[in-house]
Lab assay of single mutants.
Amino acid sequence: TEDEKKIQELLKRANGDVSKAEKLAQSQGNEELARRLREYANK
């Protein structure tokens, strides 16, 4: 999905570090994506 692409892109930029990727999403003002990242990471 589009969200998964965004999540994978963020994870790439954060070198696979979920908490960093989450902070990136939040810094972009994207709380929804940050929440999805957390769920994605907890799979």
Rank of each mutant, 00 (worst) to 15 (best):
K6E: 15
E9D: 13
N42G: 10
E22P: 00
T1L: 13
R36A: 12
S19R: 13
E32M: 06
A25H: 00
E4H: 10
I7W: 05
S19N: 12
E4T: 08
K43Q: 14
V18T: 06
Q8E: 12
K12S: 10
T1W: 14
K43V: 12
T1H: 12
N42A: 12
N30P: 01
V18R: 04
G29R: 03
E31Q: 08
G29H: 05
D17E: 04
R38Q: 06
A25N: 00
K12E: 14
G29V: 03
E32K: 05
R36F: 04
T1S: 13
Q8C: 15
N42C: 13
L11N: 02
T1Y: 12
G16S: 03
S27C: 13
A41D: 07
R36N: 05
R38P: 04
G16E: 03
N30K: 05
G29S: 04
E22L: 12
E22M: 13
A34E: 02
L11Y: 00
E22H: 06
S19Q: 11
R13W: 15
R36I: 12
V18A: 07
K20E: 11
K5A: 11
E4Q: 09
R13N: 11
D17M: 03
E39R: 01
N30T: 04
N42Q: 13
E31R: 06
V18C: 08
K12Q: 13
D3S: 09
L24S: 04
K12I: 10
A41M: 14
L33H: 01
K43I: 13
Q28V: 09
N15A: 09
Q8N: 10
R13F: 10
K43M: 14
K23W: 11
R13K: 14
Q8R: 14
D3N: 10
G29F: 06
K20V: 15
E32A: 07
R35F: 05
Y40V: 09
L37W: 00
A34Q: 03
Q8P: 02
Q8D: 08
L37T: 01
T1C: 15
K20H: 07
K6Q: 13
K5Y: 10
Q8F: 11
A34L: 08
K12C: 15
K20G: 05
A34I: 08
S19L: 12
